[in-house]
Simulated scan of single mutants.
Amino acid sequence: MRPNHVGSVIWIIGIGLLFQACSLFGTDASGDILSDQAGTLLWSGSPAADGAGMLFKTEDETYYGVPGTREDYADYFPENKNQIQIIADIKRTGEKTVRGWGVEYPEIKILRIKGLQDPE
C-alpha cells in the first residue's frame, strides 16, 4: 500500500467505527415510554435476602425491575398483600437490574400509576 493510501484507509475505518457506535447506542430501549400498561405490581422480598424486590409483571408476562421497596408504594397495596393490579405509564431505562439469585430484569421507572380494585 502506498503511504498516501494508509491515511485514507485509517480515515474510512474510523468513520465506519463511528457510525457503528452511533447505531449501537441509538437502538437500545432506553427512554421508551409505554403508556397504560396493565399488570401486577408485586413485592417479592428484599433482594438482600434473595428476593426479587419490586417487580412489575405485564399482561404479556414480561417482568420489569422497579426501584424501591413495598413501603415506597404502600398507598397502593392493601394491608397484608404483596401484589396489586395496576395500570401504569412506565419508562424503560435501558439498564438491567440484578435481583436475588442473580436474575436480571429490564429496569423501569413508573411515571404514573393507578391501582385497580382487588377482585377479592
Rank of each mutant, 00 (worst) to 15 (best):
P106C: 04
P119M: 08
L24G: 05
D36W: 10
H5V: 04
W101S: 11
E71S: 13
T58R: 06
K96G: 06
G51A: 04
I33W: 08
E59V: 00
Q83E: 12
I113L: 15
M1G: 15
W43P: 08
D75Y: 08
P67Q: 02
G53K: 08
R112Y: 08
K114E: 11
I90H: 05
L24C: 09
D118Q: 07
Q85C: 01
G65H: 07
S23A: 13
I110T: 00
R70Q: 11
Q20C: 12
P119G: 00
I87C: 07
E79C: 03
Q37I: 06
Y105C: 00
D89C: 08
I108P: 03
E71V: 04
I15F: 06
E61I: 04
R2Q: 14
D72I: 02
I15Y: 06
P3I: 08
E104T: 11
I12T: 14
A38C: 02
T40S: 12
E104I: 08
A52K: 03
L41N: 07
E104A: 12
G115E: 09
G26L: 11
V103W: 06
I10K: 14
L55K: 00
K109Q: 14
G100C: 02
R92A: 06
E107V: 01
G26D: 01
D36C: 03
K81P: 02
L34P: 05
C22S: 13
G31M: 10
G100T: 08
I90A: 05
S35E: 07
G65Q: 01
R112G: 05
G68A: 08
A38I: 04
I13K: 12
S35V: 13
F19M: 09
I84D: 01
G7V: 10
G115Q: 04
Y64E: 00
E79G: 02
L24R: 10
